[in-house]
Design a protein around this nucleic acid. Structure first.
Length: 940
RNA sequence: GCCCGAAUGGUGGAAUGGUAGACGCGGUGGACUCAAAAUCAACUGGUAGCGAUAUCGUGUCGGUUUAAUUCCGACUUCGGGCACCA
């Protein structure tokens, strides 16, 4: 046989010359569209991670073709972006040249792997024939009012000298270079993506994305429901509107906070007496990067606005207003009502600034009952710092371990009640009050009084000063031991809900954010959280004080970058007519062929320096006008590329209706988990927009979304240049062959999880393929399955077919290995045995199997053959070995026939010597016979 | 902090209520060879035993079940996503 390299070249050539994988619209066949994220053709070349996902989809595509589907499996290049531009700046060549070089390398590398891409549909996002239509689609956004220019505080990367979307600067650092992002005010083109927030959530129902992908999208969109509430200002007849998800806590508002950028600060600067201080603070906040503001400095800071205050619309109370950077201008209204009792952040702020905390929600414990008697009480926790112990009273069988508790007497406050109770019950009196926690609403039944009680209990913490002890003053029925115990014992032995909750409240002070019942809230008293939210919103709407409101974290898409290497935005600014779109026949607006790609320091695009580009005439009135010089973000080109694949050479339309109607949705889209939020959201948004204006037939572009796990270097670390552990697929192909690499990457483990590269593992797969080759020497003349193998072959067809569909490539290969091991033990195998074997292996190792199929003249090329079928009747085992358990432990195995009755199986099981040994002298309680699986004998 | 996922031999991993460790790698002693590589055949979770066998064992603790890696509850660790979003 020829060398591996020779064989692989031969078949790659065959497929190319026979246009084997080129898809044509064929209405007699069912279509299937596989899409794998197109790569950014970087100078580093192909990575073994690319090989994994391309091979996986290739396996699916090859199998699907053999099953008779018309498969579209295209590939292209996402080639706009910073690295090509950086490379061009450094080497003084046009980015398009660098891109062309890289594409050439990438393509050659991919072709050496034998991936069955339809290369006739190849394009790059940087081709003018492609970006013409990206520009055209942008104009559709513009014409439908979906694109607007806005002066925005944007995330600015000082190193890349460009604006970034929120998505590109998550974590406060530039996605590209890791530099901390600063805020800069700039005019930007925006796409109204936030209008689609709800549709983007709902559309997920029409997809079969993995649950984790759906969740990531939903989280990113960040829907929250609540209300806007108008707080009248005291000094002027204007309102400060806030957004809250907890309007039910309106009666607990003790202050308000506005973002440093809030317009009211300048608007009412005349009223604010400490304006200097406020301005100082605002400047400090502005200097902080988004990263510092949101990630690092969680310490609350702020300044009170002296001379400006608000009125709580539901109770008329005057409320101070603060500015603080924990409130963001770009979410909600840029102002909040603060309820420190029931919001963690407000709690922290209130603690720091000494603002009162009003509890309006009580946690409820115990079971509610009719005819309860109400009273106020306390739970007192005394801490002995010296011994690190807590004072408890142990009621033993009459109620277990508790803290000191008691009922407040007429006119008594919680602290004095607690001091009295502690002394009466335990004798300790040299104590001092530390703090109290939120009140708890507790329901219980008192056996000694035969009554139901509903108490409002205040938990209190005291510290012990000395163990000086007076005589206890106990009632007749109070029989308990006073014991000091550790925190451990408290947590283990105090089961009473009220007491353990009390302990939690006083030991870890913080806001109470759980559900409960409302107090001090007028019309809301007694209601639960959900009931109260509904009621207060209706109340606010009725009185015109507020309204129901849904908010999303998802913001509009900042669609401009101040860079050279991107699609020019096809708009012209005319003094007379404003922003005017370039007319369609003038598209594409080409990137000029110049030598200056450096971004400018003032934040303008490099295109702004090129006067031949900038200066033009208005398409509307013909007067001199200027082009937009910003370009589109990286994500633009990848937001519709799957549509272009359907009809890549169309110069009349972005894609023909015929192609859209035939190829429809992408049936299976594979990509990295890192694109589960941004790219996938942009692409879905773009598609939904095209659908809404009638340009595409489906609202959702993708049916299934799968993602591959990363491949790590040996030792489980990320492959990186600096560690020197990057595996170059070319090296592997030339030493082991593409088929070995493909097989190994499919065998390495769960496709969706990360996997560790191992050269030894790769070698094992090479050995396996060598065995497949040697198996050919055993082929005889028979055209029927060998009788000893028939059953195994049918089982393997079933297993491989199902496993590939489930992306369980590793177990599919394992099944093939098992069948091979069996075939190797035979003196000879039939042509049919071998042919089926090679066909099953073909999607995974296409070159080798084609060659063997030809060498042994088993039939036409496998790429033109049908996928093998299995016969259900041939899968059934006449006899099977099953386990016999006694009390759940395997004691023997027995051979059972398919027709054996439960009774026969039971008899067989009970005759086994080792079973008799374990059953002897015991009573058989039950014998469980599960047909074809197990016998379990239960004895006593 | 919140949300999601994972944890199984020396190792990558199988098994989704029914004989835990399929398959691969590695290892051990053997065959072939002057020798090595390649290849072939055997063994390979721990402990005890010559062995039949017994016993322990799927991150930890508890529960449901005739039976739990698998289901339920609590926890630990690791990975991923989001994060002052009101």
């Amino acid at each position: 046989m020829d060398s591996v390299q020779k064989i692989e070249n031969k078949w790659q050539k065959y497929w190319q010359e026979h246009h084997t994988f080129e898809a044509k619209i064929d209405k007699s066949k069912e279509k299937y569209y596989y899409l794998v994220e197109f790569p950014y053709p970087s100078g580093a070349g192909l990575h073994v991670g690319h090989v994994r996902s391309y091979t996986a989809l290739d396996v699916l595509a090859r199998k699907k073709r053999m099953m008779g589907y018309n498969v579209l499996f295209p590939m292209g290049w996402d080639a706009f972006g910073a690295p090509a531009e950086q490379y061009a700046i450094k080497n003084h060549i046009h980015p398009s040249k660098a891109v062309a070089e890289n594409i050439k390398t990438f393509k050659a590398q991919i072709q050496k792997l034998g991936i069955s891409f339809d290369w006739s549909r190849e394009f790059s996002t940087t081709d003018p024939e492609y970006y013409k239509w990206t520009q055209w689609q942008f104009l559709q956004f513009f014409k439908h009012g979906m694109a607007y220019k806005a002066k925005k505080n944007i995330n600015w990367c000082p190193k890349c000298k460009t604006g970034l979307s929120n998505e590109d600067s998550s974590g406060g650092v530039c996605e590209r270079c890791g530099t901390q992002v600063v805020q800069k005010e700039k005019e930007q083109w925006m796409l109204r993506m936030s209008d689609y927030a709800e549709d983007l959530i709902e559309g997920l129902q029409d997809t079969d994305f993995q649950e984790r992908t759906k969740l990531a999208q939903i989280n990113w969109i960040g829907k929250s429901t609540g209300a806007e509430v108008d707080f009248p200002l005291k000094q002027v007849s204007e309102k400060l509107t806030v957004y809250t998800t907890r309007p039910d806590t309106l009666f607990g508002v003790t202050f308000m906070v506005v973002a440093p950028e809030h317009p009211y600060i300048d608007l009412y600067s005349g009223l604010i007496q400490n304006m200097n201080q406020v301005i100082d603070y605002r400047e400090q906040a502005n200097k902080k990067t988004e990263f510092e503001r949101t990630q690092l400095v969680k310490d609350k800071t702020g300044v009170k606005l002296e001379g400006l205050s608000a009125i709580n619309p539901v109770n008329g109370k005057e409320i101070p207003i603060y500015i603080s950077d924990y409130v963001m201008m770009n979410y909600g209204t840029g102002a909040i009502m603060a309820v420190p009792a029931h919001d963690e952040r407000d709690y922290e702020f209130a603690q720091k600034f000494g603002i009162p905390i009003i509890q309006v929600l009580e946690e409820e414990t115990g079971e509610k009952h009719e005819d309860e008697t109400s009273k106020e009480s306390i739970v007192a926790i005394v801490y002995d710092k010296e011994n690190d112990k807590y004072l408890t009273i142990n009621w033993k069988n009459n109620g277990g371990r508790l803290f000191v508790g008691g009922t407040m007497k007429e006119g008594e406050d919680p602290i004095s009640c607690a001091i009295r109770e502690i002394e009466e019950e335990t004798g300790y009196s040299d104590i001092s009050f530390v703090r109290s926690g939120f009140k708890i609403n507790h329901h219980y039944y008192a056996y000694n009084k035969n009554r139901y009680f509903n108490i409002e209990a205040t938990p209190l913490l005291f510290k012990l000063n000395s163990d000086e002890r007076k005589k206890q003053n106990l009632d007749e029925d109070e029989k308990f031991d006073v014991e000091w115990v550790t925190k451990d014992i408290v947590e283990k032995e105090i089961h009473d809900e009220l007491h353990s909750k009390s302990f939690q409240y006083v030991m870890t002070p913080g806001a109470m954010c759980d559900d409960g019942i409302h107090i001090h809230s007028d019309v809301l008293d007694g209601l639960s959280k959900k009931e109260a939210i509904d009621k207060i919103i209706s109340y606010l709407e009725e009185k015109n004080l507020g309204r129901r409101k849904t908010n999303y974290k998802l913001q509009d898409w900042i669609f401009t970058r101040q860079r050279f290497w991107g699609e020019p935005i096809p708009l012209i600014y005319c003094e007379e007519c404003g922003w005017v779109p370039v007319s369609e026949e003038d598209l594409p607006v080409l990137l000029p062929d110049v030598a200056e790609y450096e971004p400018t320091d003032d934040g303008e695009s490099p295109l702004a320096r090129i006067s031949e580009f900038v200066n033009t005439t208005c398409p509307h009135c013909g007067k001199p006008a200027k082009r937009e010089t910003d370009t589109m973000p990286n994500w633009a080109g990848s937001s519709w590329y799957w549509l272009r694949y359907m009809d890549p050479h169309n110069d009349k339309e972005f894609v023909s209706r015929e192609a859209l109607d035939y190829w429809g949705k992408v049936d299976w889209y594979n990509g990295g988990m890192e694109h589960a939020t941004r790219h996938l959201l942009y692409a879905r948004f773009w598609n939904q927009f095209l659908y809404n204006i009638g340009l595409v037939p489906n609202k959702e572009p993708f049916k299934v979304r799968a993602s591959h796990g990363m491949i790590l270097g040996e030792g489980g670390v990320k492959m990186s240049k600096s560690l020197g552990n990057v595996i170059n697929p070319d090296d592997i192909v030339s030493t082991y062959g593409a088929d070995s690499l493909r097989t190994y990457e499919m065998f390495i483990g769960d496709y969706e999880k990360e996997a560790t590269w191992s050269e030894q593992g790769l070698n094992g797969c090479k050995r396996y393929l060598d065995k497949v080759i040697r198996l050919g020497e055993k082929v005889n003349d028979s055209d029927h399955y060998s009788s000893e193998l028939e059953k195994d072959i049918h089982k393997t067809i079933k297993k491989v077919t199902e496993d590939i569909d489930d992306l369980k490539f590793n177990t599919a290969i394992s099944a093939l290995m098992i069948l091979l091991n069996k075939m190797e033990k035979m003196n000879s195998i039939s042509r049919a045995d071998y042919h089926t074997y090679l066909t099953l292996l073909n999607p995974i190792a296409p070159h080798l199997t084609e060659e063997l199929n030809e060498v042994y003249q088993l039939g036409k090329p496998l790429c033109e053959s049908e996928w093998p079928k299995y016969d259900e009747n041939k899968l059934i085992d006449e006899e099977k070995e099953i386990a016999v358990q006694v009390n759940g432990k395997v004691r023997a195995t027995i051979l059972v026939h398919i027709n054996d009755s439960d009774e026969t199986i039971r008899e067989k099981a009970l005759q086994e010597a080792n079973v008799i040994k374990h059953v002897e002298g015991k009573e058989i309680v039950k014998v469980i016979v599960i047909k074809g699986r197990i016998v379990n004998i239960v004895v006593k």
